[in-house]
Design a protein around this nucleic acid. Sequence first.
DNA 1: AAACCCATGTAACGCGTTACATGATTAT
DNA 2: ATAATCATGTAACGCGTTACATGGGTTT
Lengths: 192, 192
Amino acid sequence: MSVLRYALLGLLSKESRTGYEIVAEFEHPIGNFWMAQHSQVYPELSQMHQDDLIHCVQVKQEGKPDKKVYSLTPKGSDVLQQWLHTFAQTPRTMRDEFMLKAYFMGEVSAISAREQFESQLKDHEGRLQTLEHSLATFIQEQEGRPIRTNTAEFGRWLVVWKGIMTEKTYVEWCRQALQWLEVGEVQPHLFR
Amino acid sequence: MSVLRYALLGLLSKESRTGYEIVAEFEHPIGNFWMAQHSQVYPELSQMHQDDLIHCVQVKQEGKPDKKVYSLTPKGSDVLQQWLHTFAQTPRTMRDEFMLKAYFMGEVSAISAREQFESQLKDHEGRLQTLEHSLATFIQEQEGRPIRTNTAEFGRWLVVWKGIMTEKTYVEWCRQALQWLEVGEVQPHLFR
DNA sequence: AAACCCATGTAACGCGTTACATGATTAT
DNA sequence: ATAATCATGTAACGCGTTACATGGGTTT
C-alpha cells in the first residue's frame, strides 16, 4: 500500500469528500508534508473503490459538474487504523536540493554563496510568516478553548507547530551560514 | 538535468572517483539530504560520459575488479557552476510520512499516539547522536584550525550542522507532543 | 562455510510530475 | 473578454527502489 492511500484514507476518515476537495486539502497545512496532484488522486481513488476501501456516491449537481463523494468502508477504516498503529522507521534521506548545493559551497565565490543563502533565507522567512499567520488564525478560531489531543484539531496543531519549528531552524541556519561567510571561516570548537 | 547529475558533478569536482566510491559517499554525511543506489548511479554516469560532462579512465587492478575512474570535463564543470549559481525555490512539500500520521493522530487512542511519538523520538535521538559523533570527529580532525568558507570542509560543516539542528528540532517536537498527550490537551494561546 | 568487500551492470515496477482534454458557471 | 472555480479524467515520461546477475578476494 502506498503512502498516498493512507493519506486519502486519513482525509476521508474525518469526513466524506470528493477527489477535488482532497486535492484542495493538500494546500494548507498538511501540504507541507504530503501532497498529490489530481492526476494521481483520481485514479488512486477509483482503485481504492475497486479494492473496497472506500464507498462512492455519484451526486448530480446543477450549474456545476457532477461529483463523486467518497467515504470509508469498514475495510478502509481497518487499513487506516493498522497503518496508524505501525511503527515506521524514518528514512535515512530527506531530499533537499539546497543542502546538496550547500555541500558544494566551497566551489563558489563567497559572494555567490552569500546570494544563495540570502535567497534561501527569504524563501524560508516567507514560509515561516505564512505558517505563523495560519497558526494565529487557528488560535483565534479556538477562542481560548484548549485543543483536545483526541480531536482532528490536534493533528492540525501538531503539523503547523512542527512546520513553524522547522522553518525557524532553517532560517536560523541560513543566518548562521551568512555570518560564517562574512567572517570567512568557522571556529568549530565554539560549536560543541 | 536531474538533481542527481549535479550531485555527481559536485562530488567529482572535489576529486576523481568511481561510481562505487560515489555510492559509498552517499553514506555520511551528505546522504542525510541526497542519495542514490548504485543501480541509478552507474547508468547516470555512463550517460553523463556520453554527454561529455565527465571523462572516464578504465583502470585495471589485480585481485580486484577493474574500475572506471570518472572526472569532470570543462563542460561538466560549467554545468555544475551554472547550477551552483542558480536560485532554486524551495519545493512547497517536504514529504514526511510520520507528519502525515501525526495529522491523523486524533483518530487513535492516546496510548497509541504516545507509542508512536516515543518510537519516533528514539529514532531521531539516535540520529542526533550519530550526527553529533560525526561532528566531534570532524572537529578533532581540524585540530583547532578554523574551517575556511572556500574549502570543501565548509560544505561538510554546513550539512552536518544543519542535520544536527534539524534532528534537535524533531526531538524537541516529539517531546512536546508527548507532553501534550499526557495532559490531554494543548493551551494554544501559550504558544504565540 | 558464511559473510563481507570490491566493482559493475540490467530489468521491472511504482510513484510523482507535467501535459493534454473537456465544459459549464461565476467573478473581474 | 479573460480568468478563475468546479469537477473529472487520461497519457507520457522520468526519477527512484528493489531485485536479478556475476565473480574473485578477504575476513569471521
